[in-house]
Amino acid sequence: MSKYNLNNSYKAVVIGGSAGSFQGMVKILSQLPKGFPLPIIMCLHRLKHVRNGFVEALSIKSVVQVMEPHDKESIKKGAVYLAPANYHMSVELGNHFALSTEEMVNNSRPAIDITLGTSAFVYKDKLVGILLSGANRDGALGMKQIHDRGGLTIVQDPAECMIDTMPRAALAVTKIDHVLKVDQIVEFLKELDKQYR
């Protein structure tokens, strides 16, 4: 019955976003089904030198408390993670995070390409990648890596985005499986959740 042709083999959902993605992200987190079975790994562009506040703002309406992981912290099912300020966040083999202070990528730290690309490497075809509104090209290459390794790719509908550069950049470099509005992304995640019940 699912129009997305889903199954229960997915191991993680990774989400990237930048300018104009905050409201959408809040909506997704607030309507997440209770007991959502997969880890949600978010990399959102943020002020480099403001450590506090962002995770709290995202958590206010979220069904699950959002966490900024420590270096080498294990990735748990059903947890929601946010890349911390001024660190790149990678997923490592062995199912944990690794943080780094390397050079900025696409003028960003955290960079979405790094979180998406390393997730693609570890989870291969067991990954759902979602890219939201944003004003630069960060994340496009990461989405390509997700697609190339067999993962499922979704971008926010450019028509709905406050700034559509980011999803358009992804659409230009790789095959995107679904172009969805935020409400449809919520619906998609509910469908995905049902596969595990």
Partner: peptide, 9 residues
Amino acid sequence: YAMSSFKRR
């Protein structure tokens, strides 16, 4: 070394 960053380097 952590593999993800070593690989990037």
